[in-house]
Design a protein around this nucleic acid. Structure first.
Lengths: 296, 296
DNA sequence: CTGCCTTACGGGTCCCGTAAGCATC
DNA sequence: GATGCTTACGGGACCCGTAAGGCAG
C-alpha cells in the first residue's frame, strides 16, 4: 500500500479512464491497470466496475476516494508547511541554458515563479564545452542539456524542450544554396571541435562521429563558445550542427542555417547534481513534469 | 516521499531513539538513519537534533509530526473501512500446522481473533510429506513451516516459532541411554524417508543428508505421516530428528526423545500462496509480525 | 572503550515499460 | 476493425541489510 498507488487510484477515480489517467501521471496504461488490480486484491473489494468501454466507481470505491483524498491533502499540506520553513525554499535557482533557449523556456519559468513565489530562477548561459564542468563546479544548479546524459553523479529530470536540428554553413556555401543538408553531407566538411571537457558520447549526439553510412566526420578547428563556433563557420573553414533553436534567435552575418532533415529530434532535459536533492530543484522538476515538454 | 518513510519518521518522533525505532519496525538501525536523512534532504530542513547520545525533535519536526500523524490515521481508517466492506474480511483462514504446534501458537490465534472479530482461524494438521502439496492445492491457506522455504510460488511471512530439536529413538536404544545425540550420530542409524513430495533442501533442513564431517545419513524405511514415523521408530528400525515441539505433547509408547544438542535452532514461519494476497492473510501476517516469534 | 548514529557498498525486490492478448462497440 | 483494459515478461531503480567509520560520554 504505497502513496504512488493511492495517487493512481485518486486520479482514476476522477478521470474514470485508464488511458487519460496514465497520461496525466506520465506512466503507462498497463501500470494503472496493475496498480488498481493490486489494490483491489489487497483490500479484497472491487473499487471500480469496468468493461473495456466504461469505468465507474463502486460504492466502496466512492467512499474510499473521499477518505483518501482528505488524507493526502492533509499530508501534502503538512509536508509543504515543513518545506516552507526550510532555508532552501526561498533559494534562487541558477538555470544553465544554451544561447537563447531561455526565451522558449519562458512558460516553464513563469509557471515556476507563479507556483513558488518564495523562489526564483536566474538564467545563466552555458556553452557545449563547459556545460558539465559548470554544473559540477556549482556555477549553475540545474542545466538544460540535450540527451542522452548518462553521468553517475548527475540526475536527469523531465524533458522540457524538443526540436529539430540545423546545420550552420557559410553564406554562399553549396549546402546553403541547396537549402538543406543530410547527416551524410557532414563527412564532406569539417565541423568545430568542442574539446575534451564534455563527454564524448554527449558531444556525438549533437555532432556525430560518423555518418549513417560509416564515413568519418572530420573534426576541424577548435572552438569553445557559441560565438566562437559562429565565427569559425562564418570564416568558411567549417560547418556545424546545432539545435533548431540556435537558428531561431540568431541571424549572424555570413551564416545561413539549413535544416538537417534526416537527423532525429533533439530532446533537452533538466539535469542537476544528484547530491543536490533540494526542495527548489524538486519543485522545478515537478513543474516541468506537469507542464510537459515544449515543442519548437 | 513514501509511506514507509513517514512511518519511520513518526516512530522515531515517538521513541527519540534510532535503535528502538529500528527494532519496533523490524528494520536495521542504518535504515532508520538513511530514511530520516533522505527526508531532511528533500525537505531542506532538519527534523531532529541529534548527537550520538541524544535525539530530539526540532520545532519543524514537531509540527510535521502532528500533521502527518493525523493524515496517516485518516488514511488507515479509510483503508480499514474499505477492507471491512469486502467479503474476504470475514473469511475463515485454514492454518496448517505440524502435530500439536497449534497449542504453542495459541497466543497468535487469540491475538488474531481479538483484533479481527469478523475472521476466524481453523487449525489443520499437516505432515512433512504433504505440507507443500496441501498448500498448493488450496487445502490450507497458510502453513507454519520450518525454514528455509524458497519456492517461487510461495511467500514466506514472519517467523512465529523458534525452538530446538530432538531425535526420536526407540526405548532402550544406546542414544536413549546416553540421553542425548549429535548430528554426527545420525550417520550410524537409519532415518525415515519422507518421500519426494516435499523439496529436497527443505527436508534436509530437518533431516540432514550428511553429517558435519561429511558422512552420509542413511535414509531408511519410508513414512509419510507423523504417526507412521513414530511407529517406524518404535519398531526399532530407525531414528528420526524432529522439532522440540514434537516431544512436548507426545509420549508415545516405545519412544524416547533425546535432545540434538549441536543442531541449529529451528525457525517456523507463516507461508502462503503468493497469488493469495488477501486481507485475511495479510492481517494474520501483520499480527504475527507485531507479536514476534514465540520461543519454546 | 562503549554506545549510538552515519556512511559505503552490494544484493534482492518490485515498479514499470513493452508487447501481446482479449473484450466491447 | 478500432478502442481500451488486462496479462506476460524483462530490466532497472531503490529499499534495505551488512560492515566499517566517527563521535560523544
Amino acid at each position: 500500500m504505497e502513496l504512488r498507488d493511492i495517487e493512481i487510484f485518486l486520479t482514476l477515480a476522477q478521470e474514470l479512464h485508464f488511458g487519460r489517467t496514465a497520461e496525466r501521471l506520465h506512466v503507462s496504461q498497463a501500470r494503472v491497470s496493475q496498480s488498481v488490480a493490486k489494490q483491489e486484491r489487497r483490500l479484497g473489494v472491487a473499487l471500480f466496475d469496468r468493461t473495456s468501454r466504461s469505468v465507474s466507481l463502486t460504492p466502496v470505491g466512492r467512499r474510499l476516494r473521499e477518505d483518501l483524498q482528505q488524507a493526502v491533502d492533509l499530508l501534502h499540506e503538512g509536508l509543504a508547511r515543513a518545506e516552507a520553513a526550510g532555508p532552501g525554499a526561498g533559494r534562487t535557482l541558477r538555470l544553465g541554458v544554451f544561447g537563447h533557449a531561455g526565451h522558449e523556456l519562458r512558460p516553464l519559468v513563469d509557471a515556476f515563479r507563479a507556483r513558488y513565489p518564495g523562489s526564483d530562477i536566474q538564467l545563466n548561459e552555458i556553452n557545449g564545452s563547459d556545460a558539465f564542468t559548470a554544473l559540477r563546479a556549482g556555477d549553475t544548479d540545474v542545466n538544460v542539456l540535450w540527451l542522452p546524459v548518462a553521468e553517475p553523479d548527475l540526475t536527469v529530470g523531465p524533458t522540457v524542450l524538443t526540436g529539430g536540428r540545423v546545420l550552420a554553413v557559410p553564406t554562399g556555401h553549396p549546402l546553403a544554396v541547396r537549402g538543406g543538408a543530410t547527416l551524410e553531407d557532414l563527412a564532406d566538411h569539417h565541423v568545430v571541435d568542442l574539446g575534451p571537457d564534455a563527454p564524448e558520447y554527449w558531444v556525438a549526439a549533437m555532432v556525430p562521429l560518423r555518418t549513417p553510412s560509416g564515413r568519418r566526420v572530420p573534426r576541424g578547428p577548435a572552438g569553445r563558445t557559441f560565438h566562437e563556433i559562429l565565427s569559425l563557420v562564418a570564416s568558411g573553414r567549417c560547418v556545424h550542427p546545432l539545435g533548431e533553436i540556435a537558428a531561431r534567435y540568431n541571424s549572424p552575418p555570413g551564416i545561413v542555417f539549413v535544416p538537417l532533415r534526416d537527423a532525429p529530434e533533439l530532446q533537452y532535459a533538466l539535469t542537476w547534481r544528484s547530491t543536490d536533492d533540494s526542495p527548489a530543484v524538486r519543485a522545478l522538476a515537478r513543474t516541468a513534469a506537469e507542464l510537459g515538454p515544449i515543442t519548437l
